[in-house]
């Protein structure tokens, strides 16, 4: 039984580590801000969920697991909210996504009340 739990948590934690690193690689490799958003969300959703699940299995039925689950739920809700907030702020302040050449770009709402997103 413990062996099974150990193997499972091994798989989860290795997978979580893999996705975290891949997300970080993506933040470096991707060419512009809008694609980097997606790389970060790989680390934030996949990596985070798998790592927390693996640690929960190692924690067993204790308060540690309860806290881990609390952290997991919190990150599960706030992660996408923060990503959305960043993307929305970028869009509103006039950082336009580059649309692929073969797709006809849709019209965007007229924003850009704040100049110079380069801060």
């Amino acid at each position: 039984m413990t062996l099974l739990v150990d193997i499972l948590s091994w798989i989860l934690i290795v997978g979580g580590s893999f996705f975290t690193v891949v997300g970080a690689i993506g933040t470096v490799r991707f060419p512009d801000f809008w694609s980097r958003l997606h790389a970060v969300s790989v680390a934030d959703s996949g990596g985070m969920l798998l790592l927390i699940a693996g640690m929960c299995l190692q924690g067993g039925f204790t308060l540690v697991t309860v806290k881990l689950i609390l952290i997991g739920i919190f990150l599960f809700i706030t992660g996408p909210t923060a990503t959305h907030a960043v993307a929305n702020a970028a869009l509103v302040t006039g950082l336009r996504p580059r649309v692929a050449r073969d797709i006809e770009a849709v019209e965007l709402p007229p924003y850009s009340d704040v100049p110079d997103p380069r801060g």
């Binding site: 997606h38 790989v42 959703s45 809700i77 996408p80 959305h84 993307a87 929305n88």
Partner: peptide
């Protein structure tokens, strides 16, 4: 719904309107 779109990597809700979401896909 909006958070689910953002949670799945590859799609992100960028702006919300009354009956539409603007979604960015990589």
């Amino acid at each position: 719904f909006a958070n689910s779109i953002t949670l799945t990597p590859g799609t992100i809700t960028v702006e919300t309107e009354e009956n539409d979401f603007w979604v960015h896909a990589v």
